[in-house]
């Protein structure tokens, strides 16, 4: 397996992050963990945006990932973090394979609204489920990693952070390859001209289906990591404002590079944290203006700040 320049850079940045984890204060570790985990969900949104579809319901898979990790620990005795995260991805894949059959018939606003509808249905079900704590949700059981139990608090937070960075690296490398592979490029081709794709003997619908399922798995991983990091899950994860946040971060970062969602998610988390702290009642407005500024001045997202000179190069 040969690594290209982007992959090596991603690896180095990930290594730097892991090392930074040893010296950084706990609150910062926590903020970064949540930001990176959300960035994974955003990667799922971005994968679909490349194919021309905007999912306003990616919270569905975020929530499925989180709840599977939570329920696995509470009810089924699955305490190993890796097993729980994998199970979350598996459940998301199964759900996506079912919903995808319907969703891939739709485009544009219809796809957006339908994906939103499904996440709201899950929200409704969870709110009605007393055993799952209704609107309060429930706490995630203490977990282990290959039989080793990190000490509660700082120790476990540090472990989740490292796990999130490593997952982020693996997903980033895979997505980087995916976007340059047959399916990635042809999904962009579907966005550009579906008729032509059909007349090349390919099925746009099945391409979008494969892409939708892959995106769901990635997003569920983000949800599972969030659950491990916060130690708690609640139905809010499937609420439409959560999905809206993922779309927001996706637009903030742009589609230019696999690293963009990570950077955007970190920027977003900082802006929100400080906005809430210093101007508690206007932070939504601040986010609104941030997005407005990005759309007007950087229509291709924050990544265009990085890639100014490299225009023309296709990632």
């Amino acid at each position: 397996m040969r690594l290209d320049k982007t992959e090596i850079s991603l690896g180095l940045v990930a290594l730097a992050c892991v090392l930074f984890g040893f010296v950084s204060p706990g609150w910062l570790i926590f903020l970064l963990t949540i930001a990176l985990a959300k960035a994974l969900v955003v990667q799922g949104v971005v994968m679909q945006m490349r194919s021309g579809l905007v999912s306003f319901g990616q919270g569905l898979f975020y929530c499925i990932g989180g709840y599977t990790v939570g329920m696995g620990g509470q009810f089924f005795g699955i305490h190993d973090a890796i097993a729980a995260l994998s199970l979350g991805m598996f459940v998301a894949i199964v759900v996506a394979m079912l919903l995808g059959l319907l969703l891939t018939r739709y485009r544009e606003i219809f796809f957006a609204m339908l994906s939103l509808a499904f996440s709201m249905i899950l929200f409704g079900i969870l709110v009605k489920s007393q055993e799952l704590g209704s609107t309060d949700g429930f706490n995630v059981h203490d977990w282990t990693l290959f039989g080793w139990a990190p000490e509660a608090g700082a120790g476990s937070q540090h472990t989740v952070f490292t796990m999130t960075v490593v997952s982020g690296l693996i997903v980033a490398v895979l997505i980087h390859r995916y976007t340059k592979a047959g399916i990635g490029v042809i999904c962009e081709a579907v966005r550009e001209n579906e008729v032509r794709v059909e007349y090349l003997g390919l099925s746009p619908r099945w391409l979008l289906y494969g892409n939708y399922v892959a995106a769901a798995a990635v997003s569920a991983l983000g949800g599972g990591l969030t659950a491990l990091a916060t130690g708690h899950v609640d139905p809010e994860m499937a609420y439409w404002t959560t999905s809206g946040e993922f779309v927001f971060i996706a637009l903030l970062g742009g589609l230019g590079h696999v690293a963009a969602p990570f950077i955007a998610a970190i920027v977003f988390s900082f802006v929100r944290t400080y906005a809430i702290e210093f101007v508690p009642h206007t932070w939504q407005m601040i986010l609104g203006f941030t997005l407005l500024a990005v759309i007007i001045f950087l229509p291709k997202g924050l990544w265009s700040l990085v890639s100014r000179e490299k225009t023309g190069e296709r990632a």
Partner: peptide, 8 residues
């Protein structure tokens, strides 16, 4: 189309 081997 392949999921991981480069198109180009």
């Amino acid at each position: 189309p392949s999921f991981l081997s480069p198109l180009r």
